Amino acid sequence: MSRRVAVAVGAALLVSAGLAVVLVGGGGGSSAGDSSSVSAAPSIGFAEPAPERAGARDGVLSADEAAAPSAPASPGVPVGAVERSLVRTAQVTVEVPDAAAGVRDVRAAAVAAGGFVAEESSGDRGGSVVLRVPADALDRVLDAVAAVGEVTDRSSSVVDATEQVVDLDARVASQQASVARVRALLAEATTIGEVVAIESELTAREAELDSLTGRLAALRDQVSLSTLTVDLRVPYVLDDDEPTAAGFGPGLAAGWEGLLALGTGVGTVLGFLLPFLPVAAVVAGLVWLVVRRRRRATPVT
């Protein structure tokens, strides 16, 4: 009897152990499932996939969505072409019948385009005018200047100053921030030594800022206003375009002109000697009297 009880108790213990193993295995499975779900979550630093567009159906986008630009890869980088900073200069030579009138016309063309005359000089045989005109009006002013006379020479050049402008912009911004920091330190200074040292540093940084600002302003002025140099020339015209013809008539005319020139020369000489004639007459009379007296005083042999 006791043997049967022992067998029953052993069987009960085996069944209990099996149930425990099953329960423990189920709990472990659930733990594994929890860990797998955690690992499936997106880690920090990776962007989640973008949601589908509302108009996307089976991979087909609407016309508006297809035309819409995509977002830039970097939000701080501008999209599209960079605006170039170009320095344009030009020079033109124009032949005009009247230099003064040509200078007036060139000046009027510059003023009409919103520019001004930087330098000006003129004379009987020509002149020179240096204009500063808006860059977008340079071609229009060139056409207006060409209409003043006949263009004999024309040239132009373009210099890309974009990198210089960007560099100076960045340096000015950095120097402004530096000056602001030094001014903040000056406001917090408590001793005379600190004030003197900080003011010296502030003066140096402000001078550097003024230099950079002036360079940037000059460069932007060259970009916004183009320089146009206009040379005006008056062509030389002979008084008598036709050469002298040969023959009796032209020879007679030349001889008559020569005779007139000779008469003019003789008249000039006579006019020069005329004031000396009375003196010469007096001298000649005195000489004649002396000679006559000597002849009378000499005895005749």
Results as ranks from 00 to 15, higher is better:
residue 40 A to M: 07
residue 64 D to N: 00
residue 113 A to Q: 05
residue 129 V to F: 08
residue 62 S to G: 13
residue 37 S to N: 12
residue 51 P to C: 07
residue 20 A to C: 05
residue 62 S to K: 12
residue 93 T to G: 15
residue 124 D to H: 07
residue 29 G to T: 08
residue 65 E to S: 12
residue 57 R to C: 13
residue 80 G to V: 12
residue 85 S to P: 07
residue 71 A to S: 08
residue 30 S to M: 13
residue 133 V to W: 02
residue 90 A to L: 10
residue 51 P to D: 01
residue 36 S to C: 08
residue 32 A to T: 15
residue 110 A to P: 11
residue 97 P to D: 15
residue 82 V to Q: 11
residue 89 T to N: 10
residue 18 G to E: 10
residue 136 D to A: 14
residue 92 V to P: 08
residue 71 A to Y: 06
residue 123 G to K: 14
residue 62 S to T: 15
residue 39 S to Y: 06
residue 21 V to I: 09
residue 102 G to W: 02
residue 37 S to I: 02
residue 98 D to R: 07
residue 73 A to W: 03
residue 75 P to C: 06
residue 102 G to H: 00
residue 66 A to S: 05
residue 18 G to F: 14
residue 105 D to I: 09
residue 36 S to E: 04
residue 77 V to F: 07
residue 138 L to K: 00
residue 56 A to D: 01
residue 48 E to S: 14
residue 129 V to Q: 08
residue 111 V to P: 02
residue 52 E to N: 07
residue 58 D to H: 03
residue 122 S to Q: 14
residue 71 A to T: 09
residue 101 A to N: 01
residue 79 V to N: 02
residue 127 G to E: 05
residue 73 A to L: 13
residue 22 V to P: 04
residue 97 P to R: 14
residue 116 F to M: 04
residue 39 S to V: 13
residue 54 A to P: 09
residue 56 A to I: 00
residue 127 G to C: 03
residue 47 A to W: 01
residue 66 A to W: 04
residue 68 A to S: 09
residue 122 S to I: 03
residue 41 A to N: 11
residue 62 S to V: 04
residue 114 G to M: 09
residue 100 A to N: 13
residue 60 V to R: 10
residue 40 A to E: 03
residue 50 A to G: 06
residue 114 G to C: 13
residue 95 E to M: 01
residue 89 T to D: 09
residue 91 Q to N: 03
residue 68 A to N: 00
residue 119 E to M: 12
residue 74 S to C: 04
residue 26 G to M: 09
residue 76 G to R: 04
residue 113 A to T: 08
residue 108 A to C: 01
residue 30 S to I: 04
residue 97 P to Q: 12
residue 131 L to Y: 11
residue 19 L to P: 05
residue 105 D to C: 08
residue 109 A to M: 11
residue 78 P to D: 02
residue 115 G to A: 07
residue 62 S to M: 03
residue 130 V to A: 12
residue 132 R to H: 05
residue 57 R to Y: 14
residue 59 G to R: 05
residue 47 A to Q: 04
residue 24 V to Y: 15
residue 39 S to R: 06
residue 34 D to W: 13
residue 39 S to A: 14
residue 61 L to C: 07
residue 126 G to V: 12
